[in-house]
Design a protein around this nucleic acid. Structure first.
Lengths: 71, 71
DNA sequence: CAAACATGTCAAATATTTTTGACATCAACT
DNA sequence: AGTTGATGTCAAAAATATTTGACATGTTTG
């Protein structure tokens, strides 16, 4: 029932000067554990955090997060 | 500190055959109160609900939700 | 080897989102 | 006048996201 959301955060971090999880966390003002959890798909972020992460990489939300509908 | 996110849900509901809050709620599988709260900007939704609402209107997340960065 | 760093994980506490149920108002209709 | 439907609000509970602090692992560097 719950939709699954994947993301390209890890890929984008490496493409952006090998940014570390801690650096991204600081840049978007969340904890490192939050970045880890989102990156690993443990849960999906709030829309606000999603916007912050996307903008950090100069991307749209949909270029970073991928939603696949369930049946 | 908290970024503000506005949205075009009400406008889109009316553009889509005057869809009611209840119909939208049913379509994206949340309660009517959730639609009311998001529509009125009481809080911003999860990324998952944001995706569902956007797709309901055949829009991207960014065509429905507008994030304004804080200083 | 030891120190530093990046990553992963866990558990408990806190914050935020979402649900449920109830009630109020207003407009449209019979 | 009464009913129905759409919207708004409130409060408490439940679910989910986020934080904090701690610890473990592997890699790199002095």
């Amino acid at each position: 029932m719950s939709a699954h959301i994947t993301n390209a955060i890890r890929k984008l971090r490496f493409e952006h000067n090998e940014m570390t999880q801690q650096q991204l966390a600081d840049a978007v003002d969340v904890s490192r554990q939050t970045i880890v959890a989102i990156e690993k798909g443990k849960y999906s972020p709030s829309l606000e955090v999603a916007f912050k992460i996307a903008r950090q990489f100069d991307k749209s939300v949909e270029e970073v997060f991928f939603w696949q509908q369930q049946g």
